[in-house]
Design a protein around this nucleic acid. Structure first.
Lengths: 219, 219
DNA sequence: ACTTCCGATCCTTGA
DNA sequence: TCAAGGATCGGAAGT
């Protein structure tokens, strides 16, 4: 078919510049690679399409140390269609993580977060995949793309994120505190006794929170 | 064991009944397998979650004879969240299809259709995956993922860490804010104008901080 | 992601 | 009514 006309652009994160994937992409005739400092993700393949590329080892360790989940949170906040590409076989890493955890992670991403998880065998295949994604998202396939609707960006999750910074406060306690005090400002002006009134917050936790809120910064 | 309470149901298509996948599923303690004549797809893992399972060879031939696309159409028409599981390595089939076409198909499914394409090595892994998907779609995670982890222990660093949770506030700005206000409590009770007095904080950042500190939590 | 472990919270008892 | 005990929840750390 009388081919294509428009130039395809992929914007890659600076840190990926020296990767084999970028090497392959730059060799491609149909793709122009640009570089930028991306706040999250590694490759922008088209409007709203962000790809986070992870080598198998890195995928596994990002599960282990919780990086994956905060990354997903940011990807979803900034782009319509985040995609994760895993390079290599993550069941074959030398980590002691259980297979259930790996399967669970993929299921979590697909079912709960709605993020496609694509597996590639090597950098070359990743590059090929990125190229196809760029083509699809920039030129479409002849008809309009029906993207799943994205939830309106939720500021409440941001508040929770901040409150979770407090020691011994996880997601549950953060939600309870915010439900009770409504705003962060009020949360930090509350007395120890008032803090106890929030569900799940006892004397001990209350005093810890209060202490930190009023602890003078030394430096 | 005390685990869960509600049992998980997966509805499989009749034609899958004698497959190894169903064998594995039926052996599972947590899953109940039911059978039905499904109009499309192979496994219903939860409300709106349909899985189409394809062995590598079948995946490839479904591309060449265009079956894949009509199947996807039906899956999307009937279910909220279609997922495709490919069993085996589809780059290793005996078909003459080009790698580009394979990669292109996966990209199409992910980018344009928003359908996760999950690769499994064998029937057992497929079963494991189905189980996780059933659990996630029927019961959710069962817990909440922590937005932040590895909180620092040292007091001053902790304060900085908390303040860094604010959007567009990095280490530098956090330090400046804390030096100026000394405590988190005061920082969050400050007015917009007062916030500007801290080094490196302009009108825009100040208003952002103030906004977040007084933003009511919705949930 | 999952599992395990431990401390904090909450709930019941019983004096 | 309140303190002591145990059941439960939630956070943190490890795989």
């Amino acid at each position: 078919m009388g081919t294509s006309t428009n130039l395809l652009v992929i914007t890659a994160d600076m840190r990926e510049q020296r990767s084999r994937v970028c090497g392959c992409l730059e060799r491609s005739r149909t793709i122009t690679v640009k570089y930028a400092d991306l706040a999250c993700g590694d490759y922008v393949c088209g409007p709203g399409v962000i790809v986070e590329r992870k080598e198998a080892e890195d995928f596994v360790s990002s599960i282990t140390d919780n990086r994956l989940f905060s990354q997903v949170y940011r990807l979803k906040a900034e782009y319509e269609r985040p995609i994760i590409i895993i390079e290599g076989d993550f069941f074959q890493t030398h980590s002691k993580i259980s297979p259930e955890a790996l399967v669970g992670a993929v299921s979590y991403l697909s079912v709960i977060e709605g993020i496609p998880v694509v597996q590639a065998t090597d950098a070359k295949q990743t590059a090929l995949m990125l190229e196809a994604m760029a083509r699809h998202s920039q030129q479409g396939l002849g008809y309009e793309v029906a993207l799943r609707s994205q939830k309106p960006k939720d500021a409440s999750i941001l508040l929770q994120y901040i409150v979770e910074g407090l020691p011994s406060i996880g997601p549950k306690a953060a939600q309870n505190l915010l439900r009770h005090f409504k705003t962060i400002s009020r949360l930090f002006s509350a007395s120890e006794k008032e803090l106890c009134e929030a569900a799940g917050i006892g004397k001990k936790t209350a005093s810890r929170i209060h202490e930190i809120g009023n602890l003078p910064y030394k430096r």
